[in-house]
Structures are given as structure tokens and as C-alpha cells.
Design a protein around this nucleic acid. Sequence first.
DNA 1: GACGATCTCCGCCCACGGGTGGAGACGAAG
DNA 2: CTTCGTCTCCACCCGTGGGCGGAGATCGTC
Lengths: 226, 226
Amino acid sequence: MTVDEVRVLLVDDQELVRSGLRRILRRKDGFVIAGECSDGDQVPAALAATTPDVVVMDLRMKRVDGIEATRRLRQREQAPPVLVLTTFDDDELLSGALRAGAAGFILKDSPAEELINAVRAVAAGGACLDPAVTGRVLTAYRGVPPGPADGSAVRDRLTAREFDVLSQLGRGWSNTEIAQRLGISEVTVKSHIGHIFGKLGLRDRAAAIVYAFDRGVVVPGEPSPR
Amino acid sequence: MTVDEVRVLLVDDQELVRSGLRRILRRKDGFVIAGECSDGDQVPAALAATTPDVVVMDLRMKRVDGIEATRRLRQREQAPPVLVLTTFDDDELLSGALRAGAAGFILKDSPAEELINAVRAVAAGGACLDPAVTGRVLTAYRGVPPGPADGSAVRDRLTAREFDVLSQLGRGWSNTEIAQRLGISEVTVKSHIGHIFGKLGLRDRAAAIVYAFDRGVVVPGEPSPR
DNA sequence: GACGATCTCCGCCCACGGGTGGAGACGAAG
DNA sequence: CTTCGTCTCCACCCGTGGGCGGAGATCGTC
């Protein structure tokens, strides 16, 4: 897996930055500049031409920015990992880039050595965060539900069917809708719901929805009625 | 803020590990071993006696483990940051430690240099993750709802009072309970709820609860009825 | 074969939730 | 002073949700 040389694709609209990166990476053994782009829209072509092991990506670019370029790139099969390199430790850009699928996030004012390490880590399939932004990611991480939070504890206390019903109920669907979605009658749904309430000590569907979110039976963002 | 020397408290039950750390840190200028503990239950006393800038904490300890010790420590006023140092890149330990309030997480098989950097970063109020575990945190980060997710977008669309009501509603409370908790009549609550439904395009309280969770108006784990 | 657990279905009843269509009080902005 | 938004309150109506007390079918287990 570990190749003897790391092929790097540089994507940055400032020639000065690219030449700086070029110099840093060339000074170290084991790096090859596979190609360069000055905008996100050039990335697909460059990828096909150069097959890099890692893409070093600026965020602020004119036509297609780094986040969008990363998103498009990560949707391909066998996409190389992306190390994002930016001037600003901008909250929105950070979260956008990471969510787009970036494996690393380094500020441009980092020492050269740190950049080298980051490129190497990301190329090897790892991940790397600039210390300056790690704290923010950690804060967000602490906010995610603790424990397994996949509803496994709840699964043990309910029958399979009851769990199905709770999953639907937890996303806000009505009894009629749950019946349709599970292909059973509304009466049966009500019956299951009654058992769920009994087993979990819940008094009504509102409490059940809260319970489902708290225990990770359902997850924010999935389809729900309006 | 940046002091000329970093005072470190070592917490590890293995004397061998402590002496290794001692040697690594002493070799570098700018570090002072402020104290040492061989178990988590000794940390409070050591804190009072030594006032360290950073605590380097093992996770596996006999009486009070590193996660619990970190949790207790972080509850104090002006608690020093904790850098967790462990042998295993264990998923559960990682998430537990970070959730307990650890500012950094380093594996014991990291090069000395990386440890030095981590201690320095954490002592300076930063955060640091071992590259080997950064990927996992990133994955979790990508899973958290996008955007601010603190309900701010919702706050803009609702009046202050409506937002209050939605917060209660979102945790599963009934109209009567919301009325009591907010010190208004149930009729008023129903009125607010009606407006909320209208503004947000929701059809019933079930959808509203789901909405509240999705947008981060309410948060898993807070008090709810049973 | 008997038993228990599960899934499915049924009827009866009524309370809570929610829609509709109001009204009065207050403060900020025009 | 008027207007607007917000918060508060009220009455009427009725549908969904949920409690209660069943029942038949299937399946695995002892």
C-alpha cells in the first residue's frame, strides 16, 4: 500500500503558493508533483491525466471552489484523498470541507514540516487536522450522542416488528402512514405502539419520539412528514 | 499566556511509562515535570499541590481510570487541559476520553517528537489528535447535522416565545406541562403552537419534535417526560 | 402436543391535540 | 395617533391517538 513515492496534485489559483508548495515537497524525498491546477474545474481532467495519490486543495478559487471540487472528486470511484490547504481558519469552510470529504485540513501558515507530515498521512489513507482547528472538530464531536447510539440497547427490549414501528414513529409518521409503509393495518400499528409504550415506560408518541432520538433509534436528517 | 516553561503532571500506573515520558520531556527545553500520579484518584491532590499547565493521562488505570479522572478534573474551575496517552486506539476509549473533555489523544507508539508537539499544543490551549484516530473523529464529525445546528436558523423564523414553546414541545412535553413550565395558560400554548406549525409548515406535534431535533432546537439527553 | 412469544387483527370509548375564528393589551415604529 | 407585531386569552368542533380487552395464526421449544 505504501508506495515509495507520493504523487501529489496541487490545486491552487495562486501561482506563488503552488511554487512554494512545489519547493517544499521537492526538497523532501518521496514526493512527486504529479500535476497542478489553478481552479477546481480543472481537477477532473488533471485526475485522469495524472492519477495522483493525494490532492492538495486550496479552498478559495474563482470558478469552482475547493469544497465543491472536493465533493465532486470524492463521488468518483477510487478517488484520491484530499488535503485541504487554506489561509483562513474559517469555521464554515472547515466544516464544509470536511463534510465534502476532505481527509485533512492544514492552514497555510503551518511550518513546512507539518505540511509534509500531513501530505504523507493523508496519502497513506490517514487523516490530519491542523492543531488550530482540531479543537473545533472536537467540540462538535462531543456533541454527538454518546455510546453506541445505534439503538442496540432498545433493540434488545423490543421485538423486531416493534422496533420497526418505533423507527417510523420516531420520524414523525402517523399511524396510518406507518401502516402503509410497513404494509400492515393501522390497528396492528396501534397494537405495536401500545406494547412499545408498555415496555419502554412511555406515555405517548411525543415521549416515544424523544426517546427514539435520545437512544439513537432514529437519526436527524432522515425523511419526515411536513 | 505562553509561559516560558510548561508544567506537566504525569498520570500513569506504569512506572516504566512515566520514566520514559520524564526522559523525553526533560530532554527538551521548556518542560518541567510538576508531579506524577500512579492512579486517577490521586489527581485531585496532585492538582492542588502542583498546579500543572497540562495533564498527561493514561487511560487504563486500576482504581479510577483516565476517562473518569478526566471527567472529574474538567468539572473544576480553571482545570488544566488533558492530553490522553494510551496504548490502544480503542474506539470506545477514544470517544469516552474526548467526551470527558480531553483536549488531545496520542497513542503511546507515536514518535517522541509528536508527543512533544502534542503536549505543547494542548498546554497552549489547543487540541491535538493522533493521526491514527483523526479519521474516526472526522467520520463522526461528518455525521453531525450540517450548519450551525443550534437552532439559530429556526430562531430567526419564530418569535422568542414561540421558540420557547418549540423547545418544550420538542422534548415531548404536553400542552398542559408546557403551560405550567412557561407560566402561561394552556390556551396560549396552543395558540403559539398553531403559529409555529403555520410558520414552519408542520402538520402536528410529532413532525414538530422531529423538526426540532433535526434543526438542533433541542438536543438529545435533556429532561423529558416518561 | 402443549406452551409461550410474536404478529396480526377487531371493537369500544374518550381525552388530548389541533383547526378555526376570534379578542384585548402592550410596545415599537411610522 | 395609528399601525403592526407579539403575547396573552377564549369558545367550539372533531379527528387522531391511545387505553382496554380481547382473538386467531404462526413458530420455536420443551
